[in-house]
């Protein structure tokens, strides 16, 4: 019988931990080598090009000071107005996608017949991509398309509504590919909230409005923020549909068109990189604001599966 709450005098020389063990203790071991290929790849094809683009943006093609490309962008209202045009499209459409998804996903969060079918159908526009959606919108919403034809034969309108080759065409295209995305994301966040929390609230006397407002919504808020960011990024970089169903020389000349024209049509990679950097900064600014809003909410386990 020995008590060891007090240290025992050891015989023999003390053996300290091996360096390998000390490193392993801090998480540095041979296993980290598995990370190397992926990391090298990302550094070479993402980080390096990004930094290269950044330096390039400070070296205008036709000489001049380091900020000339940026100055050129902001001084030319044809270029700088693309920011507002893009935001005017991206923010309302992303908000619409998220806000319309919430009540629908909340209502459909339980199990019902055909749920798998519905989610599958909603995946279709995501996989079809923006180019095909644009082609479909041109046909469907065009002056002779089924939509206007239906409204006219119903007597709602006399003239076809101008729904393509303008702001609304692009807006619809963003909604068609963005709404299912937002809906499915929010649905998976909602099913990540333990349903017994709501049941607990109802045993404490909360009706469904109170349950939604005081239990579900706060737990969902981080998910909403993430969804908004992702749909915003999708909408902000809208490119093919802005050209195809939009009005690419005027109202829907979004920032990615400006970048594309600089790069592919004028071969001015410095100016194109500068525009890409401006895009990145704006996106990060919006995402940062949303994350700031999100940080005011509880973050952590929501007690359920997934998410």
């Amino acid at each position: 019988m020995s008590t060891a709450s007090r240290p025992m005098a050891r015989v023999g020389k003390p053996t300290g931990p091996l360096l390998r063990h000390r490193l392993a203790d801090r998480g540095i071991n041979a296993r980290l080598l598995l990370l190397v290929p992926g990391l090298v790849f990302i550094v070479m094809l993402f980080v390096y090009p990004f930094l290269y683009g950044l330096t390039l943006s400070f070296q205008p093609m036709d000489g001049g000071g380091p900020f000339d490309s940026y100055r050129r962008f902001f001084e030319d209202s044809f270029q700088s107005s693309t920011i507002w045009k893009t935001l005017k499209l991206a923010i309302p459409s992303a908000l619409f996608n998220v806000l319309a998804s919430v009540p629908i996903a909340y209502r459909l969060r339980g199990k019902f017949r055909g749920k798998r079918f519905l989610t599958t159908v909603l995946v279709i526009p995501i996989t079809l991509g923006t180019v095909l959606t644009a082609e479909g919108l041109l046909n469907f919403l065009g002056p002779a398309g089924w939509f206007n034809r239906a409204l006219m034969s119903a007597g709602v309108i006399n003239e076809p509504l101008p729904l393509i080759n303008n702001y609304w065409g692009v807006f619809f295209s963003i909604v068609i590919s963005g709404f299912p995305f937002a809906f499915l994301l929010i649905l998976s966040y909602l099913s990540g909230i333990d349903p017994s929390l709501e049941r607990a609230a109802s045993t404490l006397g909360a009706d469904w409005k109170e349950r939604f407002r005081r239990i579900t919504l706060p737990l969902l808020a981080p998910g909403l923020a993430t969804t908004f960011c992702l749909t915003f990024v999708l909408a902000f970089s809208v490119f093919p549909s802005a050209i195809l169903v939009g009005d690419p020389t005027n109202t829907t000349r979004v920032i990615s068109i400006a970048a594309y024209q600089a790069a592919i049509e004028q071969y001015d990679w410095s100016f194109a990189s500068a525009i890409a950097m401006i895009m990145g900064v704006i996106e990060i600014a919006v995402i940062g604001l949303v994350q700031l809003w999100r940080s005011q909410f509880y973050v952590g386990s929501t007690g359920g599966k997934g998410a």
Binding site: V43, P49, Y52, G53, F236, F239, A263, A272, S273, E283
Partner: peptide, 26 residues
């Protein structure tokens, strides 16, 4: 680890056209 994770997350979060232009340049 956080930095590595962020590095892997960024290309998904960023819209392709933002990094696509510098990438195409390179």
């Amino acid at each position: 680890k956080k930095i590595v994770y962020l590095l892997f997350l960024l290309p998904i979060m960023m819209p392709p056209i933002t990094y696509g232009i510098p990438l195409a340049t390179v």
